[in-house]
Structure formats: structure tokens, C-alpha cells
């Protein structure tokens, strides 16, 4: 994983696979801290499974034998003095909280966040997503349900929609003056 955006795609895909109807992604940038919170209402996991997901040789899928998503993100967090925490309830959903040192020399770059978020929204039309970026006191929020309401019967999966969202997110994040 070269950047944090890739980790984001990865974790949100987990929620999509867990049949979440709504995924919330909250990014907080305060002082020297960068944090990501993922909240989904998917199928959830029992306590034992939660312990197992940090093991790279555990996966719930059958197409392959390894599951590296969580271990890799944990590594990225820990190398900047942060951590990754998972809490989950069966039938209710899962929350993943990741904390990183914002100015730590080993923090991976953010990568292309606007296109990542745009593609998550348009690429998983069955799952709704609320994206929030908090920078100190200011914030930017994008709710996929609002996007769909505006689009009406125009398909959200059309490339033109993704391109638009990408630009819109990029411009708004620039307004927020995000460090990354």
C-alpha cells in the first residue's frame, strides 16, 4: 500500500462486502494528529473474529488464504506512533478507528483522496456513504444520498458523474487547506 487513500478503499470495501447499507468515513486533522474513523452497519463480527482479523493469515473469503488489509493499515499506523482499533457487534456493524502521527516522517502520503472517495461512492452504488473531512474547526461533508437525490434517474455509475465528484471534492478540500 503506497498511500493512505489505498487503505481507505480497502477498509471501505470490507464494509461493502459485509453488506453495509451505510458507511461513514470521517477524517480528522487536528494538531499533530490524523485520524480515520470508519463506521458501517454491515453484518459485524463476533469478538473472536475481531481478534483474528489482525492476523495476516486470517480471511473470511474462500478465494485466497491471506487477508492483509487490516494488518497493513495497522503497520502504517503503528510506524507513526499511532494505532488501529476495531470494535464490532454482530448484526449491528463495525467501527474501525485509525490514528496516525500527522507530521511523523514515516506517515504514508494521503494519495489521491478526491478520486478515491468519488470512486467509492460511484463504484459501490448499493452502499451509501457519508464522507466528512474535519480540519480544526472547519469541515467538508459529502453524502451519497444527496448526490443520488439530485441525479434522480441518471445513473451514478456514469464516468461523467465520477469526474464531477472528483473535482468537487478536490476543490472543497483545497478550500479547507488540508495539510495532505
Amino acid at each position: 500500500m503506497k498511500d493512505l487513500s489505498m487503505h481507505i478503499t480497502d477498509i471501505v470495501q470490507n464494509s461493502v462486502r459485509a453488506k453495509a447499507k451505510l458507511v461513514e468515513l470521517i477524517i480528522n486533522e487536528t494538531g499533530d494528529q490524523l485520524s480515520f474513523t470508519f463506521v458501517d452497519d454491515g453484518c459485524g463480527m463476533d469478538e473472536e473474529t475481531v481478534k483474528k482479523v489482525s492476523d495476516p493469515f486470517y480471511t473470511s473469503r474462500t478465494t485466497r488464504k491471506v487477508g492483509l488489509g487490516i494488518p497493513l493499515f495497522t503497520q502504517s499506523a503503528e510506524q507513526t506512533g499511532g494505532e488501529l482499533k476495531i470494535s464490532s457487534t454482530i448484526g449491528k456493524g463495525t467501527t474501525v478507528e485509525v490514528r496516525l502521527g500527522l507530521n511523523h516522517i514515516d506517515r504514508p502520503p494521503m494519495g489521491d483522496l478526491p478520486s478515491t472517495v468519488a470512486m467509492l461512492i460511484t463504484g459501490n452504488p448499493e452502499t451509501e456513504m457519508i464522507f466528512t473531512y474535519n480540519k480544526e474547526e472547519e469541515k467538508f461533508v459529502l453524502d451519497s444520498r444527496e448526490v443520488k437525490e439530485i441525479l434522480g434517474d441518471v445513473d451514478i455509475r456514469l464516468p461523467q458523474v465520477t469526474s464531477f465528484l472528483k473535482e468537487m471534492i478536490a476543490e472543497n478540500l483545497k478550500e479547507l487547506n488540508t495539510t495532505i
Binding site: 487513500s5 489505498m6 478520486s115 460511484t122 463504484g123 445513473d155 455509475r157
Partner: peptide, 26 residues
């Protein structure tokens, strides 16, 4: 991700009507 991004940009530029989505590990 880069490939998806590229395909979306290209199809947007060439005005190809296609639906691009993500899927899990095949």
C-alpha cells in the same frame, strides 16, 4: 485504483457511455 481512474477519465473524455463500478477480489 489508478486503472479505474484512468478508465473513468478516458471514457469521460471520449464520451463513452459506460457504467464503472468496483467489485471485490475475484
Amino acid at each position: 485504483k489508478e486503472i479505474m481512474n484512468y478508465m473513468i477519465d478516458e471514457m469521460d473524455n471520449q464520451a463513452i457511455e459506460a457504467l464503472v463500478t468496483q467489485t471485490g477480489c475475484m
